[in-house]
Design a binder for these strands. Structure first.
Lengths: 111, 111
DNA sequence: ATTATATCTCAATATTTATTGAAATATTGG
DNA sequence: CCAATATTTCAATAAATATTGAGATATAAT
């Protein structure tokens, strides 16, 4: 992930309702959750939730599919992984720095 | 890390100059970098960089120390780790979901 | 077809956040 | 003490983002 996309993803997550919704989606797994379910769970008005989900979608952090009259959102795991990797990339210039961070795992094994 | 602190951290990182500065600090390791060095490296005015570094500091993502006339900033690695853990916490409800994410590593081994 | 449900879009307003430049503070060297 | 360096603080302006409510669209059930 490059800088612009990373900033879009971080901005998307840096909001109470969106962070709560995204975490619910991460925990829900690939089956995802309906927009209305998320709105109720995080306490947002439907139109506000729609706006927020569009932000997460635009940032590439979630995917959506229609199922009946509901629109189901799911976490985009590779995007999340890429975000974490970008933040920890090349930690301590790549030295075995002994710092208590998952950087080694995040930055090299996953992309 | 709880929701409010996480949002502060994500907001702090969701800005071009601050993200660039934080990544430089992560890569620089515990020795850190001076405010002026960061300002020049990311192309920000000194007063703007000061504002941005204060945001990162307020979010707990960096620490600072004076060294001569310079103020040296360093990445706060445990804070970064906590942020990553919060995002991936309880991924797929804790099931072995087989999803390509460092969640298992981030959420349980580090806090 | 009609009605109800689920969600989205749009425009207006309110709020938050970033940038700029001038002035203040702290430190070092002469 | 005085001048130079490094950084911060403050106030003004500019720009981006969130919230609200009304209306539009798509789907399903009767």
């Amino acid at each position: 992930m490059e800088a612009a996309g990373t900033i879009r993803a971080l901005s998307a997550l840096a909001q109470e309702h969106r962070l709560a919704a995204f975490r619910l989606l991460v925990q829900a797994g690939p089956e995802g959750l309906a927009a209305g379910t998320l709105a109720e769970a995080v306490g947002a008005a439907p139109s506000a939730m729609s706006f927020h989900l569009a932000q997460l979608d635009h940032a590439g952090l979630v995917t959506q599919r229609r199922e009946g009259r509901s629109i189901i959102y799911s976490a985009n795991y590779p995007a999340m992984t890429g975000l974490l990797a970008y933040l920890t990339e090349n930690c301590c210039a790549g030295d075995a720095c002994g710092i208590d961070t998952p950087a080694a795992c995040v930055s090299t094994e996953f992309a």
